[in-house]
Amino acid sequence: MGTKVARKWLWWILAIHLVVLAAELVAPHDFARQVRTLSFAPPTPPRWIDAEGRFHWRPFVYALQRDPRNPREFIDTTNERHPIRFWVPSEPRQMGPMVLKYRLFGTSSPTGIHLLGTDRYGRDMFSRILYGARLSLFAGALAGTLAVVLGLIAGTLCVTWGGWVDAFLMRMVELTISLPWLYLLIGVRAFLPLSMDPVPVFVLTIALVGTLGWAVPARLVRGVLKTAREQDYVQAARGFGASEAHLLFKHLLPQTRDTLLTQWALLVPKCVMAEVTLSFFGLGVQEPFPSLGSLISVLTEAHGAMTRVWMFWPAVALGLAILSYHLLAEALQQHRDV
């Protein structure tokens, strides 16, 4: 029962990751493309019924223009429909090893479609959210993986070495848990150069966040291994002259699997939030590269973003992603309890 639910959430999370991974393809605009005339433009929803009330099979958008009576607001330019097409040609751009010449969807006119509106510089929010989510989610997933791996190694060391190694590592675990992680994270980050290319920042963030997350998995792995070692069948294997390696790989480590998976699901949202918080404070990737954190931090700036509802979409996207991870963790934990 629990496994079924867990598998469902795992697929859903995988789907999110795949979509954001293909941001170059899915996003209708480049994340840095500015259209100065479209500062804080509201979303252009896909429409099927035009201004004259006629129905069209192919959805379309109207371009936006400033309202002559109220220059803060935008109105639809209803004299021309811009049909939304799939697989529209675009300027060639690199996605990993591939060169893309198409976008998944868009309009053929340069006006473009802004599903979730634009920001202060007239950049497409939907595209920026996709790119930003890619950075934040993958940083979180990789940092969570790193934390779990470090925890596994540390916990295994505790059990195989024992003695002072065990005592020392457990002391470090307590220390890591009782310290304020955010101060620690920011503290270490602060001693490194502030403006860097996005790739080093990405790697650095993963390394920092992952390293700080090792404590809880390490303690749990240690506990699991300790009880596992006392089991009769492990003692029996020792009786066959089994080496420590045989015991570890055949009997002990397989038992940590459930714990590790649950810990991973619990850690990833924390790591995503760590990256988001870092970039929220301007310590992550620098403009124009988006992260969910920097997209959210716009809301606290005094440029009137607060009053534009669509500027909250990054927060909503983040909330949904975090919620998905929590539901996965919940399902995994239930599976273990049953």
């Binding site: 089991q231 009769d232 069948y233 003692q235 029996a236 020792r238 009786g239 066959f240 002259g241 089994a242 080496s243 055949k250 009997h251």
Partner: peptide
């Protein structure tokens, strides 16, 4: 490791003695 093979302990509960 070699010596342990010369003496075999059979546990009380056989179900718990196999993985």
């Amino acid at each position: 490791r070699g010596l342990r093979r010369r003496v075999q302990l059979v546990f009380q509960d056989p179900a718990r003695a196999v993985s």
